[in-house]
Amino acid sequence: MTEGEATNGTTTAATEPQGDVDSKIIRQIEYYFGDYNLPRDKFLQEEIKKEDGWVALSTMLNFKRLASLSTDTEVIANALAKSEQKLMEISEDKVKIRRDPNRPLPTYNDDVKAETMKRTIYCKGFPKDGTATLDTLLKYFQNYGPYETVLMRYFYNDAEKKQGFKGSVLVVFPNEEKAKEFLELEEVKYENTSLIRKWHADYVEEKRKEVEERKAKRNSNKKKNGENEERTDNFESIPKGVFIRMTEVPVGTTREELKEAIGEKTDQLSYVDFSNTRSEGYLRFKTEGSNKEILEKLGEFKIKDTVINLSLVEGEEEEQQIKTANEARSKVLSNIGKKRKFGGVGRGGFRGNKRRRN
């Protein structure tokens, strides 16, 4: 279940004017059922299949952020009736809601992901002391025209065993033109700090290059010390206590996204067994017996604001994973050996053909 946008900065109907609460209820539900979130939300995807798209408001109260605004389903229904977008329909008895069937949901695929990336801006420079809550940021970005959503970025604090705000966000605008307008503003300040702004695609590419440079540097250092990292990784048998199983991964998530998110919390990741067409997979780490400690370190692990279910791989399941991984390695080594063999023949030209005749 995707918890819309974030779970901090909560408010209640008892502490705010009803008009403000109504606006927040509308915004939150339209976010849950909007083009950005719904294709990624496995929980809601399953719910809307049950009754022609209808979802009980009592079920929606499982979303903490909505429940923090009101737990009265009648209040929620009455607020939603005031929406100007009219994205949602309300049942006659006001106990269920659904997305307007005349507004079909786009299929979440690589094309949609690429299109969303083109209208997403990375912003950095917000305070990390807890004063920049989601509600504060949502209100702040209203100054720059309409937007689809604001996503706060987090890291895992080992000392405190909890997530911390990175001071950066992703702002998804309704179209590329609006995103470009925001990016091309001469200066954008939050309080007294000028924000760093760039296309999300550029930020991702920068991070990818940083990872490659760090990897190249590590390999270079190992070669200087007379070690061969690739050979050690390929020939040693997979040890026990290195697997963690993932379930409820948003379909469309890439291995690169998983690697980046995990890399922010530990440098022990060795391999990700996952495909973006699946919702489950396996993580493999480097050090024998490390999976329990790493599982604790990962904590409430999220991808695209969805909490991923992580569990230790033990017993028969672990034996099967070790067997599968070792077989895959053997196959890779066999292919490498064949390439080297035929590569040697090819380099020999006529001499290689002569050897065959002999």
Rank of each mutant, 00 (worst) to 15 (best):
D52N: 13
V55P: 00
A56W: 11
S58L: 13
M60E: 08
M60V: 12
L61P: 01
N62M: 11
N62Q: 15
F63N: 12
F63I: 15
K64L: 15
R65G: 02
R65N: 08
A67Y: 02
A67C: 04
S68C: 08
S68M: 08
S68L: 11
L69M: 11
S70K: 03
T71Y: 03
T71D: 06
V75K: 11
I76Q: 07
A77I: 14
A77G: 05
A77W: 13
A77K: 09
N78Q: 12
N78H: 07
K82F: 04
S83T: 09
E84V: 15
E84P: 12
K86M: 11
K86L: 07
K86I: 12
K86V: 10
E89H: 13
E89P: 04
D93M: 13
K94N: 08
V95S: 15
V95K: 15
V95A: 11
V95L: 15
D100S: 12
P101N: 04
N102C: 05
R103N: 07
P106I: 07
N109C: 07
N109V: 07
N109D: 15
N109S: 13
D110R: 09
D110M: 03
D111H: 12
K113M: 13
A114T: 15
E115L: 09
T116C: 06
M117K: 12
I121L: 05
C123F: 01
G125I: 05
P127Q: 02
D129H: 04
T136I: 10
L138W: 14
K139V: 01
F141I: 07
G145H: 09
G145M: 06
P146V: 02
Y147H: 11
T149C: 09
T149I: 10
V150T: 04
V150R: 05
M152G: 00
Y154N: 05
N157E: 14
D158K: 14
D158P: 08
